[in-house]
Write a protein that binds this DNA or RNA. Structure first.
Lengths: 261, 261
DNA sequence: AACCATTGGTTCATATAATGACCCATATAT
DNA sequence: ATATATGGGTCATTATATGAACCAATGGTT
């Protein structure tokens, strides 16, 4: 991994859950030496991508990112392309849908279309969800580079609920199953009462870059609704991939033939 | 300059005016070897900060930036803090105001509050303005590190209008004057008929990080309106600096005593 | 008040990773 | 057909990144 890569990892560490952090903590999280971490932070700071609070000495993301995001969005408006499709999926299923991108060791929620129902799953833009116990995460892992999967399964994983699967070999099976049928299911493995169904979205290299998911109160899941949602999610994943100029993995196409239970 | 710094320079090259670019062009603009540039782009791409169009092979800013900007904005909402003050300055002067951050060799427009008048100056968020012939640019240069000024003046500069000053020694004088009174004036030096009055905004290290400016049709500029706007801009610059947790340069405070013409 | 465990920050000999001249295939002008 | 772009890749040389050890300062604990 190049020096530049290592420096950029620091940016990935920041999230809504951890919007600012100290030098030692960042070094620990990234697994770098303190001196190295500090040099990286200074370089990032030179360009306005991080700033340091003069009081607390903590580092946070910098204002220059707003400019870049603005250029990106006015130039290549992902939101404009994806949101209508996400809304369509929401209307079709009647349930909350969301689009997320893989970011470091988690999925970052980029867009949400909430269900109109009173009893619905609700989440927030920017939320970061763990890979191993969410439908989106499993769907992404199923088409992610093998090395990424290995690295994730090597570490000890945290169970979010009593339904969470944290055994590496069992997780391998789940990932394998998702790869088989192009769809991942997470039944209350991230939060009790919440059922997730997700499919990967691909970039132009046929690499999974993110995922779309439908999140449902578990009470509304029946064999019928499940089948219906799976079919809708599968189709929407293809549509969004296409809208973003991506190319689905070869194997993903063949999933159409698989009986979606 | 460290390797990481050099890689990050590539991100700064992208703008609304140049939202995507090829390998050779980027290498040329940054002054790097093609191989080096390519390695940087790949590293940036690994983290989603740039992407490559598979057709044209051109590179553009990546989607991961949206996540970072989102975290930054929900965590440390600059817009929420600055926009009200910018609106206040607009209301006070009746003219279009904007806030910009220094980014590479230009000022990047971050926020705008447009004048309600029919005959008004109009600009766009994200626009990048040259340093040497805009009020914002001069205001920033006046309190920027000496090395930055030297580097800028070393290169040949482009005249935007027949009023643009491009002679290094004359520009030095303009910058010096701006440093004296904390205010920079640009009379039709970027665009004919447009008059700009700007003051720097400082970060927590008392370094100029950006500027606010009032842009006026030159027809409405009289000694009186000019004096009034200068006073308002000066005060707003202090307010915004404070709102952002910044600390004005020592010299900037003393400008209050200077007669603003 | 002495103690230990943190923190942010710094130094410098060593080892590792960055560099760029050179090469290739392809595409678009002349 | 020749010249000059382009994106991409290789590899010996060299410059840069690295991290153990080191401060000074802060904040609990005993």
């Amino acid at each position: 991994m190049s020096t530049v890569d290592r420096a950029l990892v620091l940016l990935d560490l920041f999230s809504e859950a951890m919007p600012e952090s100290g030098l030692s903590e960042l070094a620990r999280l990234a697994g770098y030496d303190k001196a190295t971490t500090r040099r990286f932070l200074i370089s990032l700071g030179n360009h306005g991508y991080v700033e340091q609070d003069p009081e607390t000495k903590k580092y946070r993301l910098g204002a220059a990112l707003l400019r870049l995001a603005h250029v990106r969005e006015t130039t290549f408006p992902v939101t404009d392309l994806v949101l209508p499709l996400l809304n369509g999926l929401r209307d079709e299923t009647g349930e909350t849908t969301h689009f997320s991108l893989a970011a470091g060791n988690s999925m970052a929620t980029m867009m949400i279309a909430e269900s109109p129902r009173a009893n619905r799953v609700s989440l927030e833009t920017g939320e970061r969800l763990p890979l191993h116990c969410t439908a989106s995460g499993i769907a992404w892992l199923a088409f992610a580079p093998e090395k990424t999967v290995q690295r994730l399964l090597a570490k000890p994983l945290k169970a979010q609920t009593k339904h969470s699967e944290i055994d590496p070999t069992r997780l391998r099976e789940l990932i394998g199953a998702a790869r088989e049928c192009g769809i991942a299911v997470a039944d209350q493995s991230y939060e009790d009462e919440v059922h997730g169904i997700a499919a990967p979205v691909f970039d132009h290299n046929a690499q999974a870059s993110g995922a779309i998911a439908v999140a449902t109160p578990v009470s509304r899941i029946t064999p019928e609704t499940s089948r219906q949602i799976k079919a809708a999610v599968y189709k929407a994943a293809l549509d969004i991939t296409k809208a973003l100029g991506g190319l689905p993995d070869r194997g993903f196409y063949e999933c159409q033939k698989v009986d979606l239970q």
